[in-house]
């Protein structure tokens, strides 16, 4: 009977410490913003402030999808009153043409698999190209 207790204790320790022994090397993601399109911009600004985009971009993208596809609204007016075309491929990806370095870097790190690319065509990127 005692044998089972020892097996149980070992199993408990292995399971509980699982995140400790499998954590892996922490390599912080570094999303890159230096695409040719962004370099060309005079005022390097996204549709909304950076902090907002960092936290809320997924919500904004969801609103854009609903606006463009369900309501047919193709114009987005941002907090500064500037107008943008509601389009992932033509507005977002025009500047952020580096999906691998810009999107995937953080998404992979945080284990997020957005379903944008179920419908949209992901931009073709070659290795080495930014």
């Amino acid at each position: 009977m005692k044998r089972y207790v020892y097996i149980g204790i070992v199993a408990f320790i292995v399971i509980v410490t699982y995140p400790f022994w499998s954590a892996g090397k922490a390599k912080k993601p570094e999303p890159k913003l230096d695409t040719p399109e962004i370099q060309k911009l005079v005022e390097k600004k996204c549709v909304e402030p950076k902090e907002f985009m960092k936290r809320e971009h997924m919500k904004l993208l969801n609103q854009w999808r609903d606006a463009a596809l369900r309501d047919g609204t193709r114009v987005y007016v941002n907090s500064e009153g500037k107008e943008f075309t509601v389009s992932l491929q033509n507005t977002c990806m025009k500047c952020h043409s580096n999906k691998k370095k810009f999107c995937d870097e953080c998404h992979n790190y945080a284990g997020v698999k957005p379903y944008c690319w179920d419908c949209h065509i992901a931009p073709k990127e070659e290795e080495g190209q930014i």
Binding site: P19, A23, G24, K25, A26, K27, N108, A110, G111
Partner: peptide, 18 residues
């Protein structure tokens, strides 16, 4: 939550999330 504890994120976490 293992997606926040393990790098790279294991496949079963993605499967469960999907």
């Amino acid at each position: 939550h293992m997606r926040l504890f393990i790098e790279p994120v294991p496949g079963y976490v993605h499967f469960l999330e999907s």
